[in-house]
Design a protein around this nucleic acid. Structure first.
Length: 275
DNA sequence: ACCGGAGCCTGTTAGC
DNA sequence: TGCTAACAGGCTCCGG
């Protein structure tokens, strides 16, 4: 569900609510939430901890605590962090951050893929090996080109690799390829210089536009106040197969790459197009 | 090292 | 209308 823009939206909404607050207790309600670490260490770290900052790394939400290890939350497909006065009555409530003199932070997750763990040296590989932040100034077209070099995987599949570039998911990978007029199945290492530059710009453009629009809600994603994101109606290709391409009118196609849906315009992202 | 497929879960939707 | 299969925004593991 949530990709970089949705996670950034959550972090920005939680920041003013949580910063400076003290966690009374973290209540864990489902064993799968803590499968990457020890539940007792997590509970101990949270008990009485002061929250000093909220940040994001890739798709991870980071709750930074004073003199304690940072708490990381990954929403995976269906996780939500929702603020409410009292714990939500949801049957899918998996964990509750009880705050002193403040609201409740609810971790709701239908599919139980989401996780909460400590950045204390025992964090999962998926966090440790995260690649470059695509909206950071160090993510240049040159750097992007180096990442693609010699790779045979289709470019869209490669964009999903969190250890190379952190934060792009299935929606924005399709959207970025469309914006850049790059065929999603083109082997990553075979993009020419113009295509690399266009796709680099497109990635940054798509992600920052989606952040400005508070993310994409197709069904599950909600901001911490329960409101949906606004980028969904701006999507050009994702979920729009058999609808006309907004640029050329050709019917958008859907295909499967590495087990995931890819949406693209067969005309303006033609594999034959060369610059 | 690289690459693709299955698997993890529950809920919703498309299609017969 | 009712059932079943396919599909879903994420990532990990395993085999070739």
């Amino acid at each position: 569900m949530p990709e970089l823009p949705e996670v950034e939206t959550v972090v920005r909404a939680l920041r003013p609510v949580l910063t400076g607050k003290t966690i009374d207790q973290l209540e864990l309600l489902h064993p799968r939430v803590t499968r990457h670490g020890h539940p007792h260490l997590l509970e101990d770290a949270c008990r009485g901890a002061n929250i000093v900052a909220l940040s994001r790394r890739g798709k991870f939400i980071l709750i930074e605590l004073e003199n304690r290890p940072t708490v990381a939350v990954h929403l995976r497909m269906s996780g939500q962090l929702l603020v409410s006065d009292t714990p939500l009555p949801s049957p899918h409530l998996r964990a509750i951050f009880h705050l002193e003199d403040g609201p409740t932070l609810n971790f709701v997750d239908i599919r139980t893929f989401g996780t909460i763990f400590l950045i204390d040296g025992s964090e999962p590989d998926g966090y440790r090996t995260l690649g470059i932040e695509p909206l950071s100034s160090s993510f240049t077209a040159k750097r992007f080109g180096e990442i693609l070099e010699g790779r045979a995987t289709g470019i869209k599949t490669l964009l999903l690799r969190q250890d190379l570039i952190a934060g792009i998911g299935n929606i924005y990978a399709s959207e970025a390829c469309w914006l850049a007029k790059v065929h999603p199945a083109l082997p990553a290492g075979e993009l020419n210089e113009a295509q690399v530059k266009r796709l680099h710009r497109a990635i940054r453009r798509v992600l920052s536009d989606a952040v400005e629009n508070l993310g994409t809600t197709l069904s599950d994603f909600r901001r911490p106040d329960g409101e949906p994101g606004q980028y969904g109606n701006r999507l050009h290709v994702y979920g729009r197969h058999e609808n006309p391409c907004p640029r050329c009118g050709t019917s958008i196609e859907r295909m499967v790459q590495h087990g995931r849906s890819t949406f693209f315009c067969p005309r303006c992202q033609s594999q034959q197009l060369r610059d």
